[in-house]
């Protein structure tokens, strides 16, 4: 398959993504209309839209700009590039498209959670094994950031029923946040323990932590600690909302504690049933 064909496919993929995003945002608006407290939702939406819409636009625009820019380069300059440069740009288009798909998936998940339509698929399995796999997956990112990552995944945790893909998503959100907000030389630790009929998983770090005033808003949609002065953190601010939704769909709970003397600690508890 030559580069021109690949590019044509990518242009179609980009257009489809834009369509999916538009439909998703439209569905979200429709869900709002279904709320009994429509007026309240509208007031909240209007109060937040000045912040939320530019943030969402930015988050969608960044990967789309990369796809567009890389496609443009490949169309105009393929003959002047070496094979590695062509491959790197194609890989970049792929990873930016995957990032966009994840973002659309996140928006859709939140929409389902708000509409009471979010579902999980439980299977009987080992949470300890899953936690080990997730820690191994994040080891390279931690190494790059020069952050130590350790996992005490609780060998004595009995097998039970949970949705492995969704719990992976919980761990992925918590671990990526912990590594992102922990400076070089710091540490991130995952601890799993089994108490009565509950499994508790703790993800703690020695990073910047969450200011007390921001803690009550941590699991609110679109909220990101540290946004100030017209400059925002990257991300949609949906990760922790989805994390909470997944834990609650298992009948569990998630909460935040300061990691004394410094850092953040997220704890989620899942029932053994």
């Amino acid at each position: 398959m030559n580069v021109q064909i690949i590019l044509n496919i990518l242009v179609i993929v980009e257009s489809l993504l834009l369509l999916v995003i538009s439909i998703t945002l439209f569905r979200k608006t429709s869900d709002f209309k279904k709320l009994k407290k429509y007026e309240e939702a509208l007031i909240m939406f209007q109060a937040n839209q000045n912040d939320v819409i530019p943030m969402l636009v930015h988050e969608l625009r960044a990967p789309l700009s990369v796809v567009k820019g890389a496609s443009d380069l490949l169309l105009k300059s393929t003959d002047e590039m070496n094979a590695d440069q062509v491959r790197d740009l194609l890989a970049q288009i792929k990873s930016s498209s995957e990032g966009l798909l994840k973002m659309v998936g996140d928006i859709l998940d939140v929409s389902k959670m708000e509409g009471g339509k979010f579902q999980i698929s439980k299977v009987f399995g080992s949470l300890g094994g899953l936690l080990k796999e997730e820690c191994a997956y994040f080891e390279s990112l931690a190494r790059v950031k020069e952050v130590s990552l350790s996992c005490a995944t609780g060998e004595n945790i009995p097998e039970f029923s949970f949705d492995p893909e969704r719990v992976k998503q919980v761990m992925s959100n918590l671990l990526s946040n912990a590594i992102k907000f922990t400076p070089k030389g710091g540490s991130v630790e995952v601890i799993a323990r089994h108490v009565d009929r509950i499994v508790e998983v703790v993800v703690e770090d020695t990073g910047i932590g969450v200011p007390e005033k921001d803690q009550p808003k941590l699991f609110h949609k679109f909220f990101q600690a540290g946004n100030q002065g017209g400059v925002t953190q990257k991300g949609t601010g949906l990760g922790l909302v989805i994390t909470k939704g997944i834990v609650e769909a298992h009948g569990g709970k998630i909460w935040y504690e300061d990691n004394k003397p410094k850092g953040a600690k997220f704890i989620f508890a899942l029932p053994l049933k």
Partner: peptide, 15 residues
Amino acid sequence: DDEGFFNIFSVPLKM
């Protein structure tokens, strides 16, 4: 810090 933007803008500069 965005690897994607670094890639698409650095390639033509290097060329």
